[in-house]
C-alpha cells in the first residue's frame, strides 16, 4: 500500500463515520457539525483526485455557506435539544425505509461503476490549470446546464423572498 492509499482510506473512514454520526446524533447541532465534517471529507477526496478547484469550491460552498446557514437556522428554531422528533415511535416503515434507500443507492452506484462507462483508467496527464479548464468547459460544452442551474437558484431565491415578504397594509 502506498502513502496515498493509506491517506485515501483514512479520509474515507473519517467521511463515512462523520456521515453516520449525522444520522445518529441526538442533538441537531451536533448532526449539523458532523455534516460539515462529511463535506470536508468529500473535499479531501476531490483533492486526492487532483481536482483542487472543485475541492476548494466544495469547502467554500458546503462548509462555509450551507453548513453555516443550517446551524443558523437551528439556532433560530426552538426545541433543538433532546431526542429527534419521531424517534419514540417505531413502525415497520421506519425500519425498512432507510435500509431500502441505502440498498437502492448502493445498487445504483454499483450499476454506474460497472455499466455506465465510469470505470476508466485515470488520465495520464492531469490538468494543472484547473480553474481555466473548468471555466472554459462551463461556458462552452456545459453552458446550457450551467445557465439552467443558475435559473433554478434564481427561482429558489425569488421563492424565499415571496415566502418571507410581509403583506402590505
Amino acid at each position: 500500500m502506498t502513502v496515498s492509499d493509506v491517506l485515501f482510506l483514512a479520509i474515507c473512514l473519517i467521511t463515512l463515520v462523520a456521515a453516520w454520526r449525522v444520522v445518529v446524533s441526538a442533538k441537531v447541532m451536533h448532526a449539523a457539525l458532523w455534516l460539515g465534517l462529511t463535506f470536508f471529507g468529500v473535499a479531501a477526496v476531490f483533492l486526492m483526485l487532483s481536482a483542487d478547484f472543485v475541492a476548494a469550491a466544495q469547502v467554500l460552498v458546503y462548509v462555509g455557506a450551507i453548513t453555516v446557514l443550517l446551524i443558523f437556522g437551528i439556532m433560530l428554531s426552538e426545541g433543538t435539544e433532546g431526542t429527534p422528533r419521531g424517534s419514540e415511535r417505531s413502525s415497520l416503515g421506519r425500519k425498512v425505509a432507510p435500509v431500502g434507500a441505502a440498498a437502492g443507492f448502493a445498487a445504483l452506484m454499483v450499476y454506474l461503476y460497472h455499466q455506465a462507462g465510469l470505470r476508466q483508467p485515470p488520465p495520464a496527464e492531469v490538468a494543472t490549470d484547473t480553474p481555466r479548464a473548468i471555466g472554459t468547459l462551463l461556458f462552452s460544452d456545459f453552458v446550457i446546464p450551467f445557465e439552467v442551474a443558475s435559473l433554478v437558484l434564481l427561482v429558489g431565491m425569488v421563492g424565499a423572498i415571496v415566502l418571507a415578504m410581509r403583506e402590505e397594509g
Binding site: 476548494a56 469550491a57 469547502v59 467554500l60 462555509g64
Partner: peptide
C-alpha cells in the same frame, strides 16, 4: 486556486 483557497480556508472561521 489561491483566491478560492483563501475564501475556503477563512470560511471555517464562521463555523
Amino acid at each position: 486556486i489561491g483566491l478560492i483557497y483563501v475564501a475556503a480556508a477563512s470560511s471555517f472561521m464562521v463555523i
